[in-house]
Computed example of a mutant assay.
Amino acid sequence: MVNTALDVPGIRLQAGELLALRGDAPRAGRAPPASRRPGAVPAKPAGAGMDLREIRAFAEGDDTRRIDPAATARTGTPHIRSFHEDRDETLLLIADFRPPMLWGTGATLRSVRAARRLALLGWRAVAQGTSLAAIGVGAGGVTAIPFGGGVRQMIRVSHMLASRHDHALESGGGALPLVEALIRAARLAPPGADVMIATGTDGIAREDEPALARLARRRRVRVLLALDPSETTPPSSPLPIHAGALTRFARLRPFDRAALSQRLRALNVGLEVLGDDAG
């Protein structure tokens, strides 16, 4: 059970509030098909489609059966043909509930605001017939829900997010790297999937970048950045900093999102900013 002092809106994440966001998501005009391909039973995608996307140099891990003889003979180095994927729409949500996300100077914690946004994206995906999966990462480790569809899947995701958030509030502990969740995501999400990672300004460390780049190699990855009011509109006056008998004054600067955007762009990852409570 969560401490009663933490059981207040904006601090504790309730499954009910995530389920209620279904009303904010657009409803489909008719029930979506189980699969984008013909037939009533969803099936695993067969792989690449028939439309040529590019001919490029062979890289480690590529399928040797797709080597293009003409380009290989012309250049003297192995080249392969790659095709646009023939796949169903898939979305993987990753919620960061590590200690740096469990704070806020506004009406809600970073983690709560990020989870609400992920849930809204999840409900929109359900309305469009998209297959959905979710990962929650906290000081206690990584929890994953494999891909599924429909309202029942989103209900499972909502309860998982609320449960993992409760555990994060109670457990505390040090901030683990995000890399374990990124490795799990690469195993879970098929090529061509959309991946949304909700985290904070300090959520992606330098040691996470290789795993993030591998995840983004054949998937559309975006970071949903939950900003606190102190990071978007910090106080204009200097603030005192006390260390024993010493006192210094410092002025806070707004978070430089352009620098993070450039860093992520080099990894083939997009950035979406989730503003403070007022925004």
Rank of each mutant, 00 (worst) to 15 (best):
R219H: 00
V112F: 08
E170A: 15
A139T: 08
R218T: 10
A189D: 11
G140W: 03
A139S: 15
G192H: 10
P229N: 11
S163Q: 10
A114W: 05
G138C: 07
L224N: 01
A134L: 00
I135L: 11
P146H: 04
R218G: 02
Q153A: 12
A175D: 15
L212H: 03
G140Q: 15
A162F: 03
E180P: 06
H167P: 01
A211W: 08
G140P: 01
P240K: 13
S131T: 03
P229E: 10
G200R: 04
P238F: 14
D208W: 11
T130Q: 14
R117D: 03
A119L: 09
F249R: 15
R222I: 05
H167R: 15
G203L: 09
L188F: 11
A162H: 02
L182W: 04
A193D: 00
V112D: 01
E180C: 01
R217G: 09
A175M: 13
S171P: 00
L252A: 14
R124T: 15
L239C: 02
I145Y: 02
V142A: 11
L132W: 02
M196K: 12
T201I: 09
A213F: 03
T247E: 12
P190S: 04
D256A: 14
V179Q: 13
R253S: 12
L224A: 11
T232H: 09
H167I: 09
W123A: 11
A144E: 12
G141M: 00
I197K: 04
A144V: 12
G149T: 13
L246V: 14
H167C: 03
L224V: 08
L215Y: 09
A114S: 14
E209L: 05
